Simulated assay, not measured.
Amino acid sequence: MIYAVLFEDDFARAVEVRRRFMPEHLAFLERHGDRILAAGPLCDPAGEPAGGLWLVDAEHAENVTALIESDPFWPAGLRRSHRILPWQRVFNQGQVLIPRPAGANKKPSPVAEGGS
């Protein structure tokens, strides 16, 4: 199963922790690339840091928690909180990956102008 992990960071510590631990964090991501499918920072509309996102392939959410807690950013105190949410890929690179509901391929019927 794929899980989305949403991180909220401790912004008061973020600059210093990232400066000190980024090389270790990136090496950690590489070592676990078979399970961490994608990872990166999130930004708000103004471009300011807003946490992070991972997509993780794991059998259980508990395995994801163990992975999070083994990331060098975790003991360094960067992460204020996290949410682990099951995620289902339904669309990828222009392809629908799930069966379409009955009638989903029908074009919408034109609306008559002027009403009745």
Rank of each mutant, 00 (worst) to 15 (best):
H60A: 12
R89P: 00
G103R: 11
S109I: 00
G77A: 09
D9Y: 13
L55W: 02
L6M: 08
A58K: 05
D71C: 03
E16F: 01
M22Q: 14
F91L: 15
R18Q: 09
H82R: 11
Y3I: 04
W74I: 04
I2N: 15
P45G: 07
V15M: 12
A50D: 14
R80Y: 04
P86L: 01
V15C: 04
P49I: 07
L42A: 04
G115Q: 11
E59P: 00
A61M: 02
S116C: 12
W87S: 09
G51Q: 03
L85D: 00
L26F: 11
G52M: 08
A50R: 05
F7M: 02
T65S: 04
H82Q: 12
F11M: 12
K107S: 14
E8W: 08
R31A: 15
P41Q: 10
Q88K: 13
L67H: 12
L37F: 10
Q88P: 00
M22S: 14
D10G: 01
E113W: 06
W54H: 04
V56E: 05
R19I: 02
G47K: 05
R89G: 04
P101F: 01
W54S: 07
E30L: 09
D44A: 12
R18I: 12
R18V: 10
S70W: 02
A58P: 03
A104Y: 02
V17Q: 05
L85A: 07
H60C: 09
L29Q: 08
P99F: 00
W54K: 07
R19G: 09
A112K: 13
I2D: 10
C43N: 13
V96Q: 05
L78Q: 03
I36Y: 02
A76D: 07
A66R: 14
L97A: 11
R20F: 03
A112M: 13
E30V: 04
V5F: 09
G40R: 07
D9I: 01
D34Q: 12
H25N: 08
A104T: 06
E8D: 15
V17G: 01
D10A: 13
K106V: 01
F28N: 05
Y3D: 01
I68Y: 02
C43K: 14
E62R: 10
L29R: 07
A12F: 00
R100Y: 02
I36A: 06
P86K: 08
I84H: 03
F28Y: 15
G33A: 14
M1C: 07
W87A: 13
T65G: 00
P110G: 05
Q95V: 13
A39L: 00
E69C: 07
L26A: 12
E62D: 13
V56S: 10
E69S: 03
I84Y: 02
R83M: 03
G33M: 01
V56I: 14
H82D: 01
P49H: 12
P23F: 01
D9N: 11
F21H: 15
P72Y: 08
L85H: 06
K106Q: 14
L53C: 15
